[in-house]
Write a protein that binds this DNA or RNA. Structure first.
Lengths: 186, 186
DNA sequence: GTCTATAATAGGATAGAC
DNA sequence: GTCTATCCTATTATAGAC
């Protein structure tokens, strides 16, 4: 007999799914309630701050995932090219081959000065920095490394937009394949 | 003495601004009313179908803009490389150097089977096709031309996401500069 | 920890005067 | 064509029982 109807991990999975798909404003408590199987009041028990708390928890968890599964290996042992290949494999799983949107996209609409957007910016910033670092270790000059890192994030985000709009996952797959080469080109 | 408080063009400009920034769900009638200076009832007089009508009109107009200012010159006279350069210049203006989001991104969230998303897909599809055409004319094989066109759209969308999140417009600018080369590379 | 019930507010949309 | 006033519904949020 479980103490909670749905455990923390599964709850956050389902919350993530809703925020990814509908964006912050589109993710109504009705949708969230349906997706999680919990009534409004139960959701407020878990997230006293309401929807904003939920979105922050979702972002926090995605950040942890990125850090442990992608960024840590990226700054770890082995040849830079192999570490980038590893990242590509992890990203393929994370975004379900392009079928999942990126929270950094779906949660970055709305007014400039909101708390969620600050979290989003932080997440993307860390990612760019780590990518630039591995490119430098691969022999790319500091200036180019930063540009390539930004371009890589741009390409990831862009192919995910195309995937969502066109239901064409080819560009995303291709981008991942080419990532080791494009990030380390001289 | 004007018959209308705001003319059609300016009205659509302001509607575009709101939908771009806040997305479909985030664009409440209160926000729209404030941004346009028109009361709810006046908006319904102009757009009997309500918010959905407004979003469709905004997409329609953006599509016309794209067609006349970008796609027509793209399939016009002159060397392919010059036509692409021209597109880059127009896109720079259209997206205000990266400061404006793309409607194809902000309006593509939500449930799969909604009318708006179909319009969005249509718009992106035409754009990809035209880009592929000019790449072919530039001597790129049909298969590669399609891939390069998808990549170009991906890169445009991705740099706009990065611009929105990071407030860094460098990647967008760079992408436009490199567009003629990347689209026509052998 | 989850529920039903309910309050309070914001959202989309309409009627009718000017 | 625009307005004020109003309606209905959906949304966020809370109270209190179990």
């Amino acid at each position: 007999m479980p103490i909670t109807k749905v455990n923390e991990d599964e709850l956050l999975d389902r919350l993530t799914e809703v925020f990814r798909t509908y964006g912050y404003e589109g993710a109504s408590l009705s949708l969230i309630s349906k997706a999680t199987g919990l009534q409004r009041a139960s959701l407020y028990h878990r997230f006293p701050g309401g929807k904003e708390d939920m979105a922050k928890a979702v972002l926090e968890r995605a950040g942890q995932w990125l850090t442990s599964r992608v960024l840590a290996p990226l700054s770890g042992q082995g040849k830079p090219v192999d570490r980038i290949r590893h990242m590509a494999k992890e990203l393929h799983a994370f975004y379900a081959g392009g079928k999942h949107c990126c929270l950094l996209d779906s949660l970055s609409f709305g007014s400039d000065d909101n708390d969620i957007r600050h979290h989003v910016q932080q997440g993307m910033s860390v990612w760019v920095d780590e990518l630039a670092k591995v490119a430098r270790e691969g022999g790319v000059t500091a200036k180019k490394a930063r540009m390539y890192a930004q371009d890589a994030i741009s390409h990831i985000q862009g192919t995910l937009v195309v995937a969502r709009v066109m239901k064409d996952y080819g560009p995303f797959e291709r981008m991942l394949t080419e990532l080791p080469t494009t990030l380390l080109r001289k």
